[in-house]
Design a protein around this nucleic acid. Structure first.
Lengths: 189, 189
DNA sequence: GGCCCCATGTAAGGTGTTACATGATTTG
DNA sequence: CAAATCATGTAACACCTTACATGGGGCC
C-alpha cells in the first residue's frame, strides 16, 4: 500500500497533473519508488474518490486536457499517519541471487556475462546518484548551508531527509557493485 | 517470472511435496525468494501442466495426502536457459525510503521509533545469516575443504555459489544496519 | 468426542505490467 | 494537412496476499 502515499508525497511537494507526476516518477521519486502512468492515473482516481486529493477546476473536455491535483487536509493527515505506522521490512526477493543459486544446480553457463552486464548497469546508476549528490548536496554535508532565499528551518530539515534517502540509493548500488565484483573475481580465480 | 524457477531449483536440490517446499521457502530458499503455500501449490499445478515437473505416483485420496514432485528433463533445460537469460535489475522500490522522504514533507513524528524497530529486525536477520555462514561455510572460505564424503568437484562448485548468495544476504543486511544507524545518528545529533 | 496439526486447495481483492485507444496541441 | 507529441484513459492479464475451506491422522 505504498503507491498512494508516494503520490501524496509527490503532490504535496508540488501539485501536478497525471503526466507531470509520471515524469517525476521517472526522476527523483522513481529513484526509490517506480510507477507507470497507468498505475498513477488509476491511483489518482481512487485518491480523489476517497477525498484525499481533489482536481483543481479546469474547463474543457475531460479527455486530452490537463487535470491538476492537490492534496486535501485528509490526505496530509493520512500521509502523516502512514509515516509512523509500523510496517515490517519485506523479505529479500531478488531474481539475480536466485539465478546464482540455480546455477549451482544446473551449471553456470551464460551467467558470468549476465553478472558483467548487471555490474555495468549498477555502476552507471551509482554514478548517476553520485552526480545528483554532488549537485544537490555539495560538500559541507549535514544541515549545511541552505541555498539562496529559502526559509532556513523547514528547508534544511526536508533537505536532510532527502539526502538520507539519496544516500540509501548510493549505498545500495555500492553494495551491488561490490557484490558483483566479488562474484566475478571468484568466477575467474 | 521467477517463482517457477525458484521452485524448479528447490525441486532439483531435493524432490518434495507442496508443504515440504513451503517449509524450505521459509528457510534457505526464502532468504532470497519468499513465497506462500498458495503461490507454491498454484505454481506446482502449472509446472506439472507444462510438463516441466511430474508428481510421483501415490495412492490414496487426492486431498489430504502427500504428493511428491520431481523435475523432468524439460524442466532442467528451462532452468538452465533462464540462468543465462538477460533480465534487467528492477528499480529500487522500498517503502521505508519512501517514508523518510514523506517525513520531509509532513514531519517526522513517529518515524524515529520505526527506524529503531527496523534496525533491530535487520540486526537480528544479519546475526542469523552470519550464524548460518559460520555453520555451513567455516573459516577457509572460497573453494575450501569439502566436507566429508561428497564428490569434490560438483559439491564445491555448488557450495561456492550458495556461499556467494549468502554473502549477498549478509551484505544487504549490513547495508541496512549501517544506513539505519546513520539515520538515527542524524536524528539525534 | 474435541482439539490440534498435517496437507492440499479455493476465492477474492489488491498491485503491477503490457498493449492499446482517444482526443488535443504543436510542428514541418 | 500529416505526423509527432501531449495527456488521459481502458482492457487484459499475471502476480501476490489474505482469508477461508476440506479432509485425514494423532492425542488427551
Amino acid at each position: 500500500m505504498s503507491l498512494p502515499h508516494a503520490i501524496l508525497t509527490a503532490l504535496l511537494e508540488k501539485p501536478s497533473s497525471g503526466l507531470a507526476l509520471t515524469r517525476r516518477f521517472d526522476k527523483s521519486i522513481g529513484y526509490f519508488w517506480s510507477a507507470t502512468h497507468q498505475q498513477i492515473y488509476r491511483e489518482l482516481g481512487r485518491l480523489e474518490a476517497s477525498g484525499l486529493i481533489r482536481a483543481l477546476p479546469a474547463q474543457g473536455p475531460s479527455r486530452g486536457s490537463k487535470k491538476e491535483y492537490e492534496v486535501l487536509a485528509a490526505g496530509r493527515e493520512e500521509l502523516a499517519a502512514w509515516v509512523a505506522r509500523p510496517e515490517d521490512p519485506r523479505p529479500i526477493r531478488d531474481p539475480l541471487l536466485l539465478r546464482v543459486r540455480a546455477a549451482g544446480v544446473v551449471g553456470r553457463a551464460g551467467l558470468e556475462e549476465e553478472l558483467r552486464r548487471h555490474l555495468a548497469l549498477h555502476r552507471r546508476q551509482l554514478a548517476e546518484y553520485e552526480a545528483i549528490e554532488a549537485r544537490d548536496f555539495p560538500a559541507g554535508a549535514k544541515g549545511s548551508a541552505d541555498s539562496a532565499g529559502a526559509p532556513a528551518e523547514g528547508r534544511s530539515a526536508a533537505d536532510q531527509l532527502q539526502h538520507l534517502v539519496l544516500r540509501g540509493g548510493i549505498d545500495l548500488e555500492t553494495f551491488w557493485v561490490a557484490w558483483l565484483e566479488r562474484a566475478l573475481e571468484e568466477f575467474e580465480g
